[in-house]
Design a protein around this nucleic acid. Structure first.
Lengths: 141, 141
DNA sequence: AGACAGTTTAGATTATATCTAATATAATAT
DNA sequence: ATATTATATTAGATATAATCTAAACTGTCT
């Protein structure tokens, strides 16, 4: 049934539902922790080495372009990916670089004069600080 | 006088005002366009090859840690840097990857229950879409 | 079957950033 | 002043992240 959902979202975006693409989507569905491209590639191929690194990157790019997946760039670290399911903001840990979802809420649009000739497609809030794990380690010293 | 200001901010953050560090700060002051580390290194060394790549990266990292400089990660591209002068948000162009400043405005804090045990240090809004230049090129076809 | 667009592949390549360990410099102490 | 120490810099090697290449494969349509 999830299988059908994945198939439908891929085809709805004009992408064939190939085994490799399916595997990427499935992995993201099962791992909400914002994996890196390398982790996705590793995991998907560990069991069944069907996919190459290039394909994983190609597919992630296509999925991002199609709006099914979101990439979050993190300073000095590999980019991280998650499914664009319910809208949400992000929290990035200063110490460990992990990315976590934050509840969605609307953000005020900037004054149109400050937009100038820009076309804004989305806006997205990034919180930074210490994740629960790192905050605790910090406190206990 | 700007020279003094740079010196004071460096020393106020416990960083020695070395020639290399000074040059990075000065370049960022004169180039508001969010240059990459490679661009900073290139530019600073073009006239006066005093600094190595490693030093540029080291210094940028120290300056970010000290809060004088901000790094903005961009998906699939090199990170970009700017001075942490007046608070501001950012706009990233989908097409060319350029980063622009957006006027600062306060963002509502998330409900504390959704914060959990996280410690939030800052939050920062990232707008995405087409910058003026790319928007125009898009329209004229 | 044949043609075609889209997709995948392994490996090479590029781009980005960090590490190493020797050296230099500045601040402090003697 | 000189010695001591912590901090900073360097060139080049290395690590990491992502993309490119060109050939091969797959699914769809006719």
């Amino acid at each position: 049934m999830d299988a059908e959902a994945i198939k439908r979202s891929l085809e709805g975006s004009g992408l064939r539902c190939t085994a490799q693409r399916y595997a990427v989507m499935e992995f993201l569905m099962d791992h909400k922790g914002h994996p890196t491209a390398a982790e996705i590639f590793e995991a998907v191929n560990h069991v069944d080495p069907r996919s190459s690194r290039a394909t994983t990157y190609n597919n992630l790019r296509d999925l991002v372009k199609a709006g099914l997946v979101r990439e979050v760039a993190v300073e000095g670290r590999a980019g991280r990916f998650d499914l664009q399911g319910m809208r949400h903001h992000h929290f990035i840990c200063d110490r460990c670089g992990n990315v976590e979802d934050m509840e969605w809420f609307d953000v005020p649009r900037p004054a149109s004069r400050s937009l100038g000739k820009r076309i804004v497609r989305e806006c997205h809030l990034i919180f930074r600080g210490l994740c629960p794990k790192c905050a605790q380690r910090s406190a206990s010293r």
